[in-house]
């Protein structure tokens, strides 16, 4: 098993998302994250899919993605160096006593403070998967009230 980040350029049609997702679900594969949005061409959407699975089966899925009529291009980032980012919104319990400590922790990770109340701090953090997960781990002991992750987006590194 290995984690793949797959980017799919599709026609911005109503059925496209479900077609793409169907290739994973029909094999009982759970997509760990999926983001969809328009690209520089509003007729084309980009889906970024993070999935954990058997190498050979993911290769099959990639071929079958290419076969879908709505799919323009498929990139499996395993082969190319790429930049990946994810956004985290995380609300952690805090009181007068530990607010400074929690904010200091956020600073170490370069997280922005999106909101503060008497009982909580809401952080916004952009980073790669590992950075996001490290931050969550550090904040956990204070009590996570709510956590929202955007899912990964990715882009190839420019050739020099």
């Amino acid at each position: 098993m290995s984690i793949h980040t797959i980017s799919v350029l599709v026609e911005n049609n109503s059925g496209a998302l479900s077609r793409v997702a169907g290739l994973f679900s029909s094999r009982g594969y759970n997509i760990s994250s999926l983001t969809v949005a328009e690209t520089e061409d509003s007729a084309i959407s980009r889906m970024t899919i993070v999935v954990d699975g058997e190498e050979s089966i993911l290769e099959q899925i990639t071929k079958q993605l290419n076969r879908l009529i709505d799919v323009i291009k498929v990139i499996d980032f395993l082969d190319d160096p790429f930049i990946q980012r994810e956004v985290l919104l995380l609300r952690v319990e805090s009181s007068k006593n530990n607010r400074h400590e929690i904010i200091e922790l956020g600073n170490i990770f370069k997280a922005r403070i999106a909101a503060v109340t008497h009982t909580s701090v809401t952080f916004e953090l952009t980073g790669n998967r590992q950075e996001i997960e490290d931050f969550i781990l550090m904040v956990k002991p204070y009590g996570i009230k709510e956590l929202v992750r955007s899912g990964t987006i990715a882009i190839t590194k420019p050739k020099k």
């Binding site: 109503s14 059925g15 479900s18 077609r19 169907g22 029909s26 879908l68 009529i69 709505d70």
Partner: peptide
């Protein structure tokens, strides 16, 4: 019909 058609349209 999505998984049993080559393509479909609404």
């Amino acid at each position: 019909s999505r998984p049993i058609t080559k393509h479909n349209f609404l």
